[in-house]
Amino acid sequence: MTKDDLRRRYEEASQWPLIGLAVLFVAAYAWGVLRPDLPGWLLTTLHVVTVIAWPVFLADYVFRLALAEHRWQFVRRNWIDGLAVVLPLLRPLRILSLVRVARVIDRRLTTSLHGRVAAYVTLTASLVVFMASLAELDAERGDPDATITTFGDALWWAFTTITTVGYGDRYPVTAEGRLVAGMLMVAGIALLGTVTAAVASWFVGRVADAARTEDMAARAEDDAADAAADEALRAELRTLTEEVRRLRAELAGEGRAGLSDRG
Protein backbone atom coordinates (compact mmCIF):
# COMPACT_ATOMS: atom_id res chain seq x y z
CA MET A 1 0.00 0.00 0.00
CA THR A 2 1.40 3.39 -1.03
CA LYS A 3 1.59 6.51 1.11
CA ASP A 4 -1.15 8.16 -0.95
CA ASP A 5 -3.42 5.18 -0.22
CA LEU A 6 -2.69 5.55 3.49
CA ARG A 7 -3.38 9.28 3.28
CA ARG A 8 -6.73 8.69 1.60
CA ARG A 9 -7.67 6.11 4.22
CA TYR A 10 -6.68 8.54 6.96
CA GLU A 11 -8.74 11.35 5.39
CA GLU A 12 -11.78 9.06 5.18
CA ALA A 13 -11.36 8.00 8.81
CA SER A 14 -10.72 11.51 10.18
CA GLN A 15 -13.25 13.53 8.23
CA TRP A 16 -16.16 13.17 10.67
CA PRO A 17 -14.11 13.96 13.82
CA LEU A 18 -12.66 17.00 12.05
CA ILE A 19 -16.12 18.10 10.92
CA GLY A 20 -17.29 17.83 14.52
CA LEU A 21 -14.33 19.88 15.72
CA ALA A 22 -14.92 22.46 12.98
CA VAL A 23 -18.56 22.87 13.95
CA LEU A 24 -17.57 23.11 17.61
CA PHE A 25 -15.02 25.79 16.76
CA VAL A 26 -17.56 27.88 14.85
CA ALA A 27 -20.14 27.50 17.62
CA ALA A 28 -17.68 28.43 20.38
CA TYR A 29 -16.34 31.45 18.51
CA ALA A 30 -19.82 32.67 17.55
CA TRP A 31 -21.20 32.23 21.06
CA GLY A 32 -18.31 34.12 22.59
CA VAL A 33 -18.67 37.04 20.18
CA LEU A 34 -22.46 37.27 20.22
CA ARG A 35 -22.71 36.93 24.02
CA PRO A 36 -19.83 38.88 25.57
CA ASP A 37 -21.88 39.16 28.78
CA LEU A 38 -21.48 35.44 29.55
CA PRO A 39 -19.81 34.43 32.82
CA GLY A 40 -16.05 34.68 32.79
CA TRP A 41 -15.48 30.94 33.20
CA LEU A 42 -17.71 30.19 30.21
CA LEU A 43 -15.98 32.76 28.03
CA THR A 44 -12.65 31.22 29.02
CA THR A 45 -13.93 27.76 28.11
CA LEU A 46 -15.08 28.97 24.70
CA HIS A 47 -11.74 30.62 24.11
CA VAL A 48 -9.94 27.38 25.02
CA VAL A 49 -12.06 25.48 22.50
CA THR A 50 -11.13 27.91 19.71
CA VAL A 51 -7.46 27.71 20.65
CA ILE A 52 -7.40 23.89 20.82
CA ALA A 53 -8.92 23.59 17.35
CA TRP A 54 -5.91 25.22 15.69
CA PRO A 55 -3.21 22.68 16.74
CA VAL A 56 -5.57 19.83 15.81
CA PHE A 57 -5.96 21.24 12.29
CA LEU A 58 -2.21 21.80 12.20
CA ALA A 59 -1.55 18.17 13.18
CA ASP A 60 -4.02 17.01 10.51
CA TYR A 61 -2.20 19.02 7.84
CA VAL A 62 1.26 17.87 8.94
CA PHE A 63 0.17 14.21 9.07
CA ARG A 64 -1.34 14.36 5.58
CA LEU A 65 1.80 16.07 4.35
CA ALA A 66 3.97 13.32 5.87
CA LEU A 67 1.88 10.66 4.08
CA ALA A 68 2.06 12.41 0.70
CA GLU A 69 4.45 10.78 -1.77
CA HIS A 70 5.01 14.07 -3.60
CA ARG A 71 5.14 16.61 -0.81
CA TRP A 72 5.80 19.76 -2.85
CA GLN A 73 2.90 18.85 -5.08
CA PHE A 74 0.75 18.35 -1.98
CA VAL A 75 1.79 21.76 -0.63
CA ARG A 76 0.97 23.46 -3.93
CA ARG A 77 -2.43 21.79 -4.15
CA ASN A 78 -3.29 22.49 -0.49
CA TRP A 79 -1.68 25.90 -0.04
CA ILE A 80 -4.92 27.31 1.41
CA ASP A 81 -4.85 24.67 4.14
CA GLY A 82 -1.23 25.52 4.86
CA LEU A 83 -1.97 29.24 5.04
CA ALA A 84 -4.83 28.62 7.46
CA VAL A 85 -2.73 26.61 9.89
CA VAL A 86 0.65 28.37 9.82
CA LEU A 87 -0.71 31.83 10.67
CA PRO A 88 -1.08 32.54 14.38
CA LEU A 89 -4.52 32.53 15.95
CA LEU A 90 -4.70 36.27 16.38
CA ARG A 91 -8.17 37.62 16.91
CA PRO A 92 -8.61 39.25 13.48
CA LEU A 93 -7.11 36.19 11.77
CA ARG A 94 -9.53 33.68 13.26
CA ILE A 95 -11.59 34.11 10.13
CA LEU A 96 -8.95 32.03 8.35
CA SER A 97 -9.96 29.01 10.38
CA LEU A 98 -13.17 28.83 8.37
CA VAL A 99 -10.97 27.69 5.47
CA ARG A 100 -10.25 24.49 7.36
CA VAL A 101 -13.94 24.13 8.15
CA ALA A 102 -14.88 24.41 4.49
CA ARG A 103 -12.06 22.13 3.35
CA VAL A 104 -13.04 19.41 5.80
CA ILE A 105 -16.72 19.53 4.91
CA ASP A 106 -15.74 19.59 1.22
CA ARG A 107 -14.67 15.95 1.56
CA ARG A 108 -18.34 15.00 1.93
CA LEU A 109 -19.58 16.86 -1.13
CA THR A 110 -20.73 15.33 -4.38
CA THR A 111 -18.15 14.09 -6.87
CA SER A 112 -19.90 15.84 -9.77
CA LEU A 113 -17.77 18.76 -10.94
CA HIS A 114 -20.53 21.34 -11.26
CA GLY A 115 -22.37 20.06 -8.21
CA ARG A 116 -19.10 20.17 -6.26
CA VAL A 117 -18.40 23.75 -7.33
CA ALA A 118 -21.93 24.90 -6.54
CA ALA A 119 -21.97 23.22 -3.13
CA TYR A 120 -18.47 24.40 -2.24
CA VAL A 121 -19.11 28.00 -3.30
CA THR A 122 -22.42 28.11 -1.41
CA LEU A 123 -20.87 26.63 1.72
CA THR A 124 -17.77 28.80 1.59
CA ALA A 125 -19.71 32.00 0.89
CA SER A 126 -22.03 31.33 3.83
CA LEU A 127 -19.12 30.59 6.18
CA VAL A 128 -17.14 33.60 4.98
CA VAL A 129 -20.05 35.98 5.52
CA PHE A 130 -20.90 34.54 8.93
CA MET A 131 -17.34 34.39 10.26
CA ALA A 132 -16.40 37.77 8.80
CA SER A 133 -19.44 39.29 10.49
CA LEU A 134 -18.37 37.83 13.82
CA ALA A 135 -14.74 38.90 13.40
CA GLU A 136 -15.75 42.42 12.35
CA LEU A 137 -18.15 42.81 15.27
CA ASP A 138 -15.50 41.51 17.66
CA ALA A 139 -12.99 44.05 16.35
CA GLU A 140 -15.24 47.09 15.99
CA ARG A 141 -17.80 47.29 18.77
CA GLY A 142 -15.35 48.51 21.41
CA ASP A 143 -14.37 51.62 19.40
CA PRO A 144 -16.32 54.82 20.17
CA ASP A 145 -16.33 55.81 16.47
CA ALA A 146 -17.52 52.40 15.25
CA THR A 147 -20.40 52.17 12.79
CA ILE A 148 -20.65 48.40 13.24
CA THR A 149 -21.94 47.80 16.74
CA THR A 150 -24.43 44.94 16.38
CA PHE A 151 -24.38 41.58 14.62
CA GLY A 152 -27.06 42.83 12.22
CA ASP A 153 -24.79 45.73 11.22
CA ALA A 154 -21.86 43.34 10.77
CA LEU A 155 -23.92 40.90 8.71
CA TRP A 156 -25.20 43.67 6.43
CA TRP A 157 -21.67 45.02 6.01
CA ALA A 158 -20.34 41.55 5.16
CA PHE A 159 -23.02 40.99 2.51
CA THR A 160 -22.41 44.33 0.82
CA THR A 161 -18.65 43.84 0.95
CA ILE A 162 -18.42 40.27 -0.35
CA THR A 163 -20.79 41.09 -3.22
CA THR A 164 -18.52 44.08 -4.11
CA VAL A 165 -21.47 46.48 -3.70
CA GLY A 166 -20.11 48.42 -0.74
CA TYR A 167 -22.83 50.95 0.16
CA GLY A 168 -20.54 52.69 2.62
CA ASP A 169 -23.20 53.04 5.33
CA ARG A 170 -21.21 50.62 7.49
CA TYR A 171 -17.42 50.54 7.45
CA PRO A 172 -14.55 49.48 9.75
CA VAL A 173 -12.60 52.07 11.67
CA THR A 174 -10.08 49.89 13.53
CA ALA A 175 -6.95 48.28 12.12
CA GLU A 176 -8.23 44.81 12.98
CA GLY A 177 -11.56 45.52 11.33
CA ARG A 178 -9.86 46.78 8.18
CA LEU A 179 -7.73 43.64 8.08
CA VAL A 180 -10.89 41.52 8.19
CA ALA A 181 -12.42 43.75 5.50
CA GLY A 182 -9.39 43.25 3.26
CA MET A 183 -9.59 39.47 3.58
CA LEU A 184 -13.33 39.58 2.91
CA MET A 185 -12.80 41.65 -0.25
CA VAL A 186 -10.26 39.14 -1.54
CA ALA A 187 -12.62 36.29 -0.72
CA GLY A 188 -15.48 38.04 -2.53
CA ILE A 189 -13.40 38.50 -5.68
CA ALA A 190 -12.23 34.89 -5.52
CA LEU A 191 -15.78 33.57 -5.07
CA LEU A 192 -17.08 35.76 -7.88
CA GLY A 193 -14.36 34.43 -10.15
CA THR A 194 -15.20 30.86 -9.14
CA VAL A 195 -18.90 31.35 -9.84
CA THR A 196 -18.15 32.98 -13.20
CA ALA A 197 -15.83 30.14 -14.17
CA ALA A 198 -18.34 27.53 -13.06
CA VAL A 199 -21.16 29.14 -15.05
CA ALA A 200 -18.93 29.49 -18.11
CA SER A 201 -17.86 25.86 -17.75
CA TRP A 202 -21.50 24.82 -17.51
CA PHE A 203 -22.42 26.71 -20.69
CA VAL A 204 -19.41 25.33 -22.54
CA GLY A 205 -20.35 21.83 -21.39
CA ARG A 206 -23.95 22.28 -22.58
CA VAL A 207 -22.77 23.57 -25.97
CA ALA A 208 -20.34 20.67 -26.25
CA ASP A 209 -23.11 18.20 -25.37
CA ALA A 210 -25.39 19.75 -27.97
CA ALA A 211 -22.62 19.59 -30.56
CA ARG A 212 -21.97 15.94 -29.72
CA THR A 213 -25.70 15.19 -29.98
CA GLU A 214 -25.91 16.87 -33.38
CA ASP A 215 -22.79 15.06 -34.53
CA MET A 216 -24.20 11.73 -33.41
CA ALA A 217 -27.49 12.50 -35.20
CA ALA A 218 -25.63 13.45 -38.36
CA ARG A 219 -23.58 10.27 -38.15
CA ALA A 220 -26.74 8.25 -37.65
CA GLU A 221 -28.29 9.88 -40.73
CA ASP A 222 -25.12 9.20 -42.72
CA ASP A 223 -25.10 5.60 -41.55
CA ALA A 224 -28.77 5.23 -42.51
CA ALA A 225 -28.09 6.77 -45.93
CA ASP A 226 -25.09 4.49 -46.41
CA ALA A 227 -27.16 1.48 -45.38
CA ALA A 228 -29.92 2.47 -47.83
CA ALA A 229 -27.36 2.94 -50.61
CA ASP A 230 -25.80 -0.44 -49.82
CA GLU A 231 -29.19 -2.09 -49.86
CA ALA A 232 -30.04 -0.47 -53.22
CA LEU A 233 -26.70 -1.62 -54.61
CA ARG A 234 -27.28 -5.15 -53.39
CA ALA A 235 -30.78 -5.12 -54.94
CA GLU A 236 -29.33 -3.91 -58.22
CA LEU A 237 -26.67 -6.60 -58.08
CA ARG A 238 -29.35 -9.23 -57.47
CA THR A 239 -31.31 -7.93 -60.45
CA LEU A 240 -28.22 -8.00 -62.66
CA THR A 241 -27.37 -11.48 -61.44
CA GLU A 242 -30.84 -12.71 -62.31
CA GLU A 243 -30.59 -11.03 -65.71
CA VAL A 244 -27.23 -12.69 -66.40
CA ARG A 245 -28.63 -16.04 -65.38
CA ARG A 246 -31.62 -15.55 -67.69
CA LEU A 247 -29.39 -14.57 -70.58
CA ARG A 248 -27.16 -17.57 -69.94
CA ALA A 249 -30.20 -19.82 -69.92
CA GLU A 250 -31.45 -18.32 -73.17
CA LEU A 251 -28.03 -18.67 -74.78
CA ALA A 252 -27.77 -22.25 -73.59
CA GLY A 253 -31.23 -23.01 -75.02
CA GLU A 254 -30.41 -21.43 -78.37
CA GLY A 255 -27.14 -23.40 -78.48
CA ARG A 256 -28.95 -26.68 -77.94
CA ALA A 257 -31.52 -25.79 -80.60
CA GLY A 258 -28.77 -25.02 -83.15
CA LEU A 259 -27.10 -28.33 -82.53
CA SER A 260 -30.39 -30.12 -83.05
CA ASP A 261 -30.96 -28.36 -86.39
CA ARG A 262 -27.49 -29.30 -87.67
CA GLY A 263 -28.03 -32.88 -86.58
Score class of each variant (00 low, 15 high):
Gly253Glu: 12
Arg94Pro: 06
Ala211Ser: 05
Ala102Met: 08
Gly40Met: 10
Ala22Lys: 00
Ala146Val: 04
Leu38Phe: 13
Arg206Thr: 11
Val128Trp: 12
Phe57Gln: 08
Arg100Tyr: 08
Leu240Asp: 14
Arg238Glu: 13
Glu140Pro: 04
Arg91Val: 07
Pro36Arg: 07
Ala66Thr: 04
Ala232Arg: 13
Leu155Met: 09
Arg108Pro: 00
Pro88Met: 06
Ala225Gln: 10
Arg245Trp: 05
Leu83Trp: 14
Leu21Val: 14
Phe25Lys: 00
Arg7Thr: 01
Ser260Gly: 00
Ala13Gly: 02
Asp4Pro: 03
Pro36Glu: 09
Arg116Glu: 12
Asp153Phe: 02
Thr161Asp: 02
Gly166Glu: 04
Val86Tyr: 05
Gly263Leu: 08
Ala68Glu: 07
Gly263Val: 11
Val173Met: 05
Arg107Lys: 07
Glu140Val: 08
Leu34Trp: 11
Ala197Leu: 01
Leu21Gln: 02
Ala229Pro: 01
Ser112Glu: 05
Ala197Arg: 06
Val62Ile: 15
Gly32Phe: 03
Thr164Leu: 15
Val121Gly: 00
Ile189Asn: 04
Val207Gly: 05
Leu127Pro: 03
Ala146Met: 02
Gly152Val: 13
Val121Arg: 01
Thr161Met: 05
Tyr171Met: 09
Trp16Leu: 13
Asp153Gly: 07
Asp230Leu: 07
Ala211Lys: 13
Thr174His: 12
Glu69Trp: 09
Ala232Ile: 07
Val49Leu: 15
Arg170Pro: 01
Thr149Tyr: 01
Pro92Trp: 03
Glu176Gln: 13
Gly168His: 10
Ala232Gly: 04
Glu250Gln: 06
Val33Pro: 03
Ala220Trp: 01
Ala218Cys: 00
Tyr120Cys: 06
Trp202Met: 03
